[in-house]
């Protein structure tokens, strides 16, 4: 089955991973800007990173027939450095007209601090000013529940932002309901230990339906499986779900969300 992985960090993966994903049916992916595993020292590091996301990864994916899209931001972990964050946010408009840029992301909170909240709000200001889609990172483990609620409060505090143009990622059982109820898109991240498993993601599809719901691997430099979306497809098939239901979650939904971006262009396989 053709599928999209709407959240995967390919800068951390090998070219062999592109080949494997292509063989498993991946036809498109979106790569949010995120933390490199260490705090970067200057805004110029981000300029190079944004070039990598908008130029190099796009061509690396294309060699395997995969359409590569991306999101730009400074991530929540580095947002503690407010002055660096402001320099990066000021630079982002230089890249917003690149053809594979979908919007601002993944922005959000990490430890739910004041500085993270301030930088998050400044990213929202940027998204509103340039009418960009938004991809949200929600915190990990015990910070996820309050952090997700704080993020939703900030999003809904700005009437310029439309919920249907925001995808809130890394939802789990205790956050998915509120995200969908408030009209946002929701993404379930399939990780080996933290976040969500393919079986629990299938449980949430059964409980909440397929509307505005996506799954992703968030494959990165940590313990993660870039092939997690095919694992979800396999789990759904084992439970007897129709191909149309599965396709809606792994293909139709990401396409529908991305299609709201004025730059988005995708040619489906004939």
């Amino acid at each position: 089955m053709d599928y999209f992985d709407p959240h995967i960090h390919m800068v951390s993966r090998t070219t062999d991973d592109y080949a494997t994903l292509a063989r498993m049916g991946c036809v498109g992916m979106s790569e949010p800007a995120f933390w490199a595993g260490f705090d970067r020292g200057s805004a110029e590091s981000f300029r190079d990173y944004f070039r990598q996301l908008t130029e190099f990864e796009r061509s690396r994916a294309a060699a395997y027939g995969i359409a590569h899209y991306t999101w730009l931001c400074i991530n929540a972990k580095e947002a503690e450095n407010v002055s660096l964050s402001r320099e990066v946010i000021a630079m982002i408009p230089e890249f917003l007209d690149r053809p594979n840029v979908l919007g601002i992301g993944e922005i959000g909170l990490n430890k739910n601090t004041k500085n993270e909240s301030i930088v998050f709000l400044e990213h929202l200001e940027l998204a509103a000013k340039f009418d960009e889609l938004i991809l949200i990172h929600t915190p990990h483990l015990h910070d996820k529940y309050p952090g997700t609620r704080m993020i939703l409060d900030m999003l809904q505090g700005d009437s310029r932002l439309q919920p249907q143009r925001v995808l809130v990622d890394h939802v789990e059982e205790h956050t998915i309901g509120e995200v969908l109820d408030r009209g946002f898109w929701a993404g379930m991240t399939l990780y080996p230990v933290s976040k969500c498993t393919p079986a629990r993601a299938a449980d949430m599809v059964e409980q909440f339906g397929t509307e505005r719901l996506c799954v992703n691997s968030a494959g990165d430099w940590g313990p993660s499986q870039p092939t997690a979306v095919p694992n979800f497809i396999f789990e759904m098939r084992r439970r007897g779900h129709s191909e149309a239901t599965i396709r809606r979650v792994v293909y139709d939904n990401p396409l529908a969300f991305f299609s709201q971006c004025r730059r988005f262009h995708f040619q489906p396989r004939a």
């Binding site: 739910n112 601090t113 004041k114 909240s117 301030i118 709000l121 929202l124 509103a128 309050p146 704080m150 409060d153 900030m154 505090g157 700005d158 009437s159 310029r160 932002l161």
Partner: peptide, 15 residues
């Protein structure tokens, strides 16, 4: 729900 006041973050009334 009082987190904005607790952190001193101005939330809401934008747009």
């Amino acid at each position: 729900p009082d987190w904005p006041a607790a952190l001193g973050v101005p939330v809401g009334k934008k747009g």
